[in-house]
Simulated scan of single mutants.
Amino acid sequence: MAEQLGRTPRGVVGIAARCVCGRPLVARTAPRLPDGTPFPTTYYLTHPGAVAAASRLEAEGVMKEMTDRLAVDDELAAAYRAAHEHYLARRAELGRVEEIEGISAGGMPTRVKCLHVLVAHSLAAGPGVNPLGDEALAMVRDQWRPDRCSC
């Protein structure tokens, strides 16, 4: 993971998703880092190919389009709120940190701020939990796929 990130990982408590070759895709991180800093990003995308694919989507303006859809699609908004609640519940398994109570990551539950987090959540939780993470994964399928090693 340090090789993937180009630095020593902080607060990692496990690997939430792996490449088919066994290397990390997503780190699961403690809600408080060893130096005491609150850290809401429970699922952290580490695989360089996945990171690059999510970055391309962000550069293409996909986050704004997704956020706009949340404002007009009640079903999508409800599913995204459920993803937010799932994220909070999984983080609570690792401990509660008052400073970030109720705050998930990636802009959930009302906007899309970081596709890396949403993709990481989808990879860690599996399909059907985070609709916009799943959608982002489908959008990058021709560039990067979790079922095909590109390590």
Rank of each mutant, 00 (worst) to 15 (best):
Y44M: 06
P9Q: 11
A77R: 11
P127G: 11
P48V: 08
A89K: 07
V13K: 01
A79Y: 00
C149Y: 15
S150M: 14
S104Q: 03
G6P: 05
A136K: 01
R91D: 08
C151S: 00
T41F: 09
V62T: 14
V112H: 01
A138D: 13
T29A: 12
G133I: 04
E85K: 03
A138C: 06
T67V: 05
L88G: 15
Y80G: 00
V119D: 08
T29Q: 06
A2G: 08
T37C: 08
L45E: 12
L25N: 08
F39A: 01
I100V: 15
P48Q: 08
L137T: 06
A53S: 12
S122L: 02
C114L: 08
A92R: 10
R7G: 05
G95V: 07
R96Q: 03
A125W: 02
V72Q: 07
L115W: 10
P127S: 10
A16V: 03
Y87G: 09
A120Y: 12
A82Y: 00
P127T: 13
R96V: 13
A17W: 11
A54W: 06
H116M: 01
V26A: 11
G126P: 01
D134Q: 02
L70V: 07
R148H: 15
L70F: 11
C19T: 11
A2S: 10
A79E: 14
D147Y: 03
P9C: 07
